[in-house]
Amino acid sequence: MIFFFPFVFAALDAEGDRDLATRLQRRDPQALAALYDKYGRIAFALIVRIVRDHGIAEDLTQETFLRVWNRMAGFDAERGALGAWVLTVARNRAIDYLRSVDGRTRQNAIELSATETPAVFVDLEANLINSDRARQLKGAFEKLNEKQRMVIELAYFEGLSQTEMAERMKQPLGTVKTWARTALQVLRSELEQAVSA
């Protein structure tokens, strides 16, 4: 799988997320427009990558922003990470869709909605979603071996649990767990080094 990262983040610094979140909580329609202009393209691309259908992705993108709009009251405008929350909601909507289509039921994993509670997204790195971080991630991703990249793709873009990954890759569960854990540690380590450099 070949990835490209060059999103255009030109508008990302045009308005601080803190101010944007405050306006969203005041139900300012212009704030929703600003939120969409800032994160809509990234959210849409992410959803397309997961569901592989532009029409469905547009429906899910609208659902994403509807959910964010309706849940802004629970978001901490002072300490919250708006971009991280929007992308998490977007991914969850897409993964939920995949699961509903192929009839995958949740067996051992937690419900996705529990992982997107707005109050959880506090004290994260400010301005997390930006072109520098995307470039760093791409660099880190390329350092992974093929198996490690595959487990990241299966986890993030297909929403497979480790057991499901093991079945898909026809590998022992322990092996898949090691690949997943190592890959995620490498990615995070690379990102942290880039921040501290």
């Binding site: 809509g40 990234i42 509807l66």
Partner: peptide
Amino acid sequence: RALETNAILGTLAPEVAPSKHLRRRVLSIA
């Protein structure tokens, strides 16, 4: 840190432009 890493992972998706219609749909929410 996990929330941060996972959010950034979303930027690995290839760039795709949504239709202009989508913006109108989203803004209709408000």
